[in-house]
């Protein structure tokens, strides 16, 4: 393992985020606060409790997931797309680094940043609602696995995209709807039976459910199923990525 190279790439990516500290940190904090004001305070007061948890506290894990998914995808996709777009990717590709090392650098930085934001959202939430974390260790496991998996997805999107439109397309058309329909703001028990079944096809349901379980011990699906599903997504992302590198798709003609 070429640690020096990986470290350099990782730190440079983190530094890029720090340069845009304002939009990186302030905007998620503001948007989370807005969700709490609207869903927690305004609407939440009319919904008393979900499975014995106050509605405000109930949406905390979902909001963190929402942030984690969107940030992971956008960070990682932009991280690799921009050098491809500007042409400076030549340097990465001609460096004495393996693909695994390149991915660790980019995806590691993107995942670190989104986890950091997830934790910031967690702290921000504290200002609005009291919550408890029943299984802190599992919470972290879910946090890390989700951040890594979706950063990998973002990395793939960043390689696939051949323009800024496509870069926005997947987060906008896929990730956001899936998160909103994935039980961020409700328990899927609240849905009619037919839609409950349909919802199970939404991968985000498993992420939110598992994550919420680590907070309150309540879940829509078994936490084990959630964990297995995340691992499944992770393996799919890794498989796609290894195909990309083997075929040289969009990187090496």
């Amino acid at each position: 393992m070429n640690l020096q190279s990986v470290k350099t790439l990782y730190l440079a990516e983190m530094a890029r985020s720090l340069r845009t500290l304002l939009q990186s940190v302030i905007s998620p904090v503001i948007s989370t606060s807005l969700y709490f004001v609207v869903f927690g305070a305004a609407i939440g007061t009319r919904i008393s409790e979900v499975d014995g948890v106050s509605y405000g506290a109930f949406i905390v894990p979902g909001l963190i997931m929402l942030m984690l998914l969107t940030q992971s995808v956008s960070n990682a996709s932009f991280g690799i797309f921009f050098p491809r777009f500007s042409g400076s990717v030549y340097e990465i590709l001609s460096a004495p680094m393996s693909y695994v090392e390149v991915v660790i650098g980019y995806v590691g930085a993107a995942a670190s940043k989104s986890m950091l934001l997830g934790l910031i959202v967690l702290l921000t939430a504290r200002l609005f609602v009291p919550y408890s974390i029943e299984h802190p260790l599992m919470m972290l496991v879910f946090l890390v696995l989700t951040a890594v998996t979706f950063s990998l997805l973002g990395f793939i999107i960043g390689i696939w995209a051949d323009g800024f439109e496509k870069l926005q397309l997947v987060p906008l058309l896929v990730i956001t709807p899936l998160t909103f329909l994935g039980g961020t703001f409700y328990s899927i028990d609240m849905l009619p039976p037919f839609w409950q079944t349909v919802t199970l096809a939404n991968p985000v349901v498993y992420l939110v459910s598992g994550f919420r379980w680590s907070f309150y011990g309540i879940s829509d699906v078994s936490p084990l199923v959630s964990l297995l599903m995340i691992l499944l997504f992770l393996s799919v992302a890794l498989a796609v990525l290894s195909w990309i590198f083997k075929s040289g798709y969009r990187l090496k003609p």
Binding site: N2, Q4, T8, S86, S88, Y90, M97
Partner: peptide, 30 residues
């Protein structure tokens, strides 16, 4: 190998010092 490409490509917002140091680290040199 060191490669100087034909197109002027660069990360516009970094400084000269940082980008040159980055290249060194990327090639695994302390």
């Amino acid at each position: 190998i060191g490669l100087v490409p034909q197109e002027l490509t660069s990360e516009a917002f970094t400084t000269v010092w940082d980008t040159v140091s980055f290249s060194r680290g990327l090639f695994g040199k302390p």
